[in-house]
Amino acid sequence: MSTRAYRGRSPEQRVAERRERLLAAGLDLWSELGWSGVSVRGVCARSGLTDRYFYESFDDRDALLLAVFDRVRDELTGRLLAVPFTGEPRAVMRAMFTTLITALADDPRHARIAFTEPAGSPALETRRHDALLAVAGAVAEGVSSVAPVPPGGVRGPALFCVGGVGGLISAWLAGRHPATPEELAESCTDLCARVFGV
């Protein structure tokens, strides 16, 4: 590979830019067609790049899908962790759920990939399970910082809440649980407040 700058960008910068274009194309296609509809050819066509550049960044289609999922997971968990963990416990929970639901409403592509699209492969299923644990960890951290820790700890209740909230959000996204985002956030808060006893 050339080590010379081109149009003011280093080879590393150009590789990173091409990777971003491929990730953006993968995100769009996954949200439009489902994971099974994503192909190397389709991603290359959408991104305007050749397969040579695809394999420069990814070993195969599954590697791209995992990278797209990781991007969505990091975006959502990052927004959750940015919520201030201070104040009354119910207010912290409500702020976290409002943040999550707002993020999904802002970018429905993320909603499909994170909540409504089947995992599709063992690797994606593992990633989704890991994401569940990561979000539960964020919830546990937020709750434990403002409320008494239950005798059995917060991990179990946090996992239970995140699983239940995920089901509720999935039904909402599919139109089977009519509610405004504010009403949905309040429902999630009520349910989890009962689980944590706050």
Rank of each mutant, 00 (worst) to 15 (best):
E117V: 09
L132W: 06
L173M: 06
L159Q: 13
G166M: 03
P151M: 08
P157R: 03
R127V: 09
L100S: 10
R112P: 00
P108E: 12
P122H: 11
I169Y: 00
G167F: 03
W172L: 11
S121Y: 03
L100E: 10
W172S: 03
V165I: 13
S170F: 05
F97Y: 15
V162E: 12
V143R: 02
R127T: 11
G167S: 09
P151R: 06
D107E: 15
W172A: 08
L168F: 04
A114L: 13
G120R: 04
P122N: 08
A123R: 15
P150M: 09
D106R: 12
G167D: 11
G167T: 07
G137C: 03
P151N: 10
A123Q: 14
I169F: 00
G120K: 05
A119I: 10
A147D: 04
G167C: 06
V154Y: 00
T116Y: 07
R127F: 03
F115A: 08
P118F: 09
L100Y: 13
R127N: 00
L168T: 15
A140E: 09
A147P: 04
G137P: 02
G164M: 07
A111H: 05
M96H: 09
V139P: 01
P157H: 00
A140Q: 04
P148E: 14
V139D: 03
A111R: 04
R128P: 01
P157Y: 04
A111E: 01
A123C: 03
V139L: 15
D130E: 15
L168H: 02
H110Y: 13
A171H: 07
P118E: 01
A119H: 06
E141L: 12
M96A: 07
H110F: 14
A111C: 09
A136K: 05
E125G: 12
E125K: 14
V143I: 14
P122G: 08
G137K: 01
E141D: 15
C161F: 07
T116Q: 06
T99D: 01
D107Y: 10
G156D: 13
L173W: 04
P150W: 07
R128I: 03
D107K: 09
I113L: 15
A119D: 11
A123H: 07
S170P: 02
A105C: 10
R109I: 05
T102S: 15
D107G: 06
I169L: 12
L132V: 12
S144L: 05
C161Q: 05
G163F: 07
C161Y: 01
L173N: 06
G153C: 04
G163W: 00
V165E: 02
T102G: 15
V135Q: 12
V162L: 13
G167R: 08
M96W: 08
P148W: 08
T99A: 13
G142K: 00
E125H: 12
L168C: 08
S170E: 13
A136D: 02
A174D: 12
V135A: 15
V149E: 06
T126M: 08
G164L: 08
P122V: 10
E141S: 14
E117H: 10
V146M: 00
D130F: 05
E125V: 10
R112E: 10
P122Y: 08
G137L: 03
A119F: 05
